[in-house]
């Protein structure tokens, strides 16, 4: 009876993950090795193409910059939130949760209104006479990064607020009572304790921006092709499924590598772990 329950209860979910995720994704990756020209020919073709290499580098660059900016902005904001009195703290958390729960399409669309040719920034700059011609801000790497930072800052704020609130007050009071001033306390007590949380947040933002589709599609377009939009274009516009599968395989390898390396580092750096 117990044996039946033990293996039977997780069975439907196990079958679902196997049939709908593991097998399909494995098949996608497997097709990239089945080419007549040799097992790695599709990868050779990917890395020999200047355009495709540029797509990969751009995606890594955008993801890294987005992660760095989100970390700094999110950490400072979470630090302020964590020290606010109850009521103000709730309001700030609500203000961070609201964009988080709003869809990615809506949040990316907002930046089309702001950065577009007839957008707010161009309108304002032209009406006060700083520029005569509207600036082309859309479909640049910068527009994609701004929208991505906008997308991920709330996630970072909420993750880090939880982390900072979890730091025992006693430790900070102990540091202060032993004579440490706020800045050394921050760097020697708070920051090391928050590091595992910072790594978790960084991994979430990096993988999220590295694999994103909607935001680069709307704000980068054809000009700023990224891995997600390139995969879609290969698969659904040119019907080059082997090419699309190659992009997919590279995305999977990089994502899993980043997640496993960073979670190992996080475990090692955790000062609370024995």
């Amino acid at each position: 009876m117990t044996k039946l329950a033990k293996w039977g209860l997780p069975l439907p979910a196990t079958i679902a993950v196997t049939v709908l995720l593991i097998i399909p994704v494995t098949l996608t990756i497997a097709t990239t090795f089945g080419e007549a020209k040799g097992a790695f020919s599709t990868y050779a073709a990917f890395f020999n193409s200047g355009f495709r290499r540029a797509v990969l580098w751009r995606t890594l660059e955008v993801a890294l910059i987005t992660t760095a900016l989100s970390l700094v902005i999110g950490f400072i904001t979470a630090y302020v939130i964590a020290q606010m009195p109850g009521r103000l703290k709730s309001i700030m958390i609500i203000a961070a949760v609201f964009p988080l729960l709003t869809g990615v399409v809506v949040r990316s669309f907002a930046w089309l209104i702001i950065l577009g040719k007839n957008g707010i920034i161009n309108d304002t700059l032209m009406s006060i006479g700083i520029i005569n011609e509207p600036l082309s801000m859309l479909y640049t790497e910068g527009s994609v990064i701004v929208a991505m930072v906008y997308l991920f800052v709330p996630l970072m704020i909420l993750t880090l607020t939880g982390v900072l609130e979890g730091i025992p007050r006693d430790l900070i009071e102990a540091s202060a009572s032993l004579g440490a001033r706020p800045i050394p306390t921050f760097f020697q007590v708070i920051l090391p304790l928050a590091t595992p949380g910072l790594i978790v947040g960084a991994v979430l933002v990096f993988t999220g921006s590295f694999t994103s589709y909607a935001t680069p599609q709307l704000l980068g377009g054809e000009k700023q092709m990224m891995m997600g939009t390139f995969l879609y274009q290969r698969a659904m516009v040119t019907f080059d499924w082997v090419g699309a599968s190659t992009v997919a395989a590279i995305m999977v390898v990089i994502t899993i590598a980043v997640v496993s390396i960073m979670s190992r580092i996080a475990r090692r750096l955790n000062p609370m772990a024995v």
Partner: peptide, 23 residues
């Protein structure tokens, strides 16, 4: 077994969508 159930987060969504379409 518990790792298995977080795989849908680990695999990029766009790769998952594309693979589901094919299979």
């Amino acid at each position: 077994l518990s790792t298995l159930f977080v795989l849908p987060i680990l695999v990029p969504e766009i790769v998952f969508g594309f693979s589901l379409l094919k299979s």
